[in-house]
Design a protein around this nucleic acid. Sequence first.
DNA 1: TCCCATACTTACATTATTGTTAGTTCCTCA
DNA 2: TGAGGAACTAACAATAATGTAAGTATGGGA
Lengths: 138, 138
Amino acid sequence: MGKTKKNSTNNINKEKIMAQCTETYAMNMIGTRWKLAVFYHLKKGPLRFSNLKELIGEVSDRMLTLHLREMEEDGLVIRTVYPEVPVRVEYHLTESAMELQPVWDFLRAWGRRHRNLMTGVEPTPLDLNIAYKGPIAS
Amino acid sequence: MGKTKKNSTNNINKEKIMAQCTETYAMNMIGTRWKLAVFYHLKKGPLRFSNLKELIGEVSDRMLTLHLREMEEDGLVIRTVYPEVPVRVEYHLTESAMELQPVWDFLRAWGRRHRNLMTGVEPTPLDLNIAYKGPIAS
DNA sequence: TCCCATACTTACATTATTGTTAGTTCCTCA
DNA sequence: TGAGGAACTAACAATAATGTAAGTATGGGA
């Protein structure tokens, strides 16, 4: 996230896997701590930095910035600066990012079901129609 | 993965998000370095430790063990020990893990498309039928 | 002139994840 | 007696990710 050491075994492994395995490439793009939260809030429409931060709740400025920067580099969000005073900066998802919707839907449905299985609660059927009724809490 | 410090801010944030957000819960289960590789090879059938290691290629014993242990705890793989000499240990995916197949398919298709977009190569349509033709390399 | 808000940076501290190397255990067979 | 293979485990080292606290730039308005 911050700096990476290009020639570390760690990084070499990562690159090697990503080059061979498209799933991993995709996972690495969407899998870190605050990214799903960013997707979740931005998919409803553009938001400025401060709003996003407020909505997510527990992120620090730094963390949010880092994640947004990476998502921007990765072609997942677009950053627009309005030169007002004080500055206004808005973020919105790219079309490509929007296409991830089915993944979120599915992960949500599967996750709920699997959690139920694990905790011994009666399992929910793996039904996508249920998935989007509520807010982020499930 | 190794030991976690239960009461670190880091861990508290993680738990808090997972409790609220089913997508994140699911992501954390399948998102670390070698897990997709494990899924990929195990979905075709059970494998013993050494085979799995060989197939993946660059993992160390320790890393593979750690990931498998976590996946076992998470209800994603099942470990069977055959008390022969030398020991034979086989791993296979649980039913719940098998149900992740659509996620892998989609991530693969999306990833390929997105990578093309990013590198300026002519984009592939987001077509799942293409997704499973070949081996892991795409 | 100084304060305000927004959207950051910087420097540093802590945790988590990944990697390396060298054992260990178990029984069998030479 | 001792080597051998499978599947680990322990101890340690390095890198990456996350978190905290304080500061910066900007121009407008009191």
